[in-house]
Nucleic acid binder design. Structure first.
Lengths: 139, 139
DNA sequence: TTCTACATTATAATAGTTCTAAACTGTTGA
DNA sequence: TCAACAGTTTAGAACTATTATAATGTAGAA
């Protein structure tokens, strides 16, 4: 939970100009107690609910990508018609409920560390992501 | 490595009419010694190389989805501008080389079983997929 | 204040995928 | 065998998420 001046500092310190659009998006994404998942489309809806100053779609895309590049957001690898982002940038994994089309965090403590006993020469591991797909248990 | 009459049987037994388009796509996907990854776009190219009878793009999409639904193909969860499919439907995971935009199988023996110590009530686990993103090691 | 580089914006463009509806074809059963 | 039907293919249009464009606006430095 940060106030605007802290967002301004955060943006400035990472080389992003603290425009009012970016500050507004910071408020929406980072003011919550809880981290959450969203699509661009959902973010646009939240923005239009919380302000009268419309932010253009292009700016939302630009900002989300900028925040992702700075490490303030993570993109969640999932086959979907749209990209999912996560405000929780700490190491953790996800359930994907295929019935509800819903993403759920898996607490990192609930996943044993994934051991990959092979490497690709000349490449270093950037991330290890586990996606657990679930569906309604009708048994 | 199956011959056409075996593909016909395979298709029929899973409730898919063995049309010449589907048989041709079976040949391309399942005649290889090795399993492989592909995008729709790449599959279309392979088809046009191996036959003079053009298969329409819609049919390629339809067929790939039908095969996926029947469990003959797996879709690989990855953020990309296009969907990746895998002819290897056995349990295994992937490296994704972000520099080369290239998918590489991880032999299942090289990954310790992923233990998820939590469940979602009323849901059953359908799959557990690990994606290891790698990049050039410039260190 | 003025300048400049960076941001925002509306809109067009792009690309992957899905939809449509007409033509075609494998299969069934008389 | 062959008619009839349901499933399949097809070209092209439509759709949707995302990116590019280029003009306008603005934050920050001098």
């Amino acid at each position: 939970m940060l106030n605007n001046s802290q967002y301004i500092e955060k943006l400035r310190s990472s080389g992003l100009r603290p425009t009012k659009q970016r500050i507004k998006i910071c408020e929406i994404l980072f003011n919550s107690e809880k981290t959450f998942h969203f699509t661009i489309n959902e973010l646009v809806k939240r923005i239009s609910k919380s302000t009268n100053d419309k932010i253009s779609l292009a700016t939302v895309y630009n900002t989300v990508h900028a925040f992702k590049n700075k490490g303030y957001l993570k993109e969640i690898p999932i086959n979907s018609d749209q990209s999912y982002f996560d405000t929780n940038t700490s190491h953790h994994h996800h359930f994907y409920d295929e019935t509800q089309k819903d993403l759920i965090d898996i607490d990192d403590a609930d996943v044993e560390p994934v051991k990959i006993n092979t490497r690709i020469p000349g490449k270093k591991i950037k991330s290890v992501e586990v996606l657990v797909k679930v569906e309604d248990d009708k048994s």
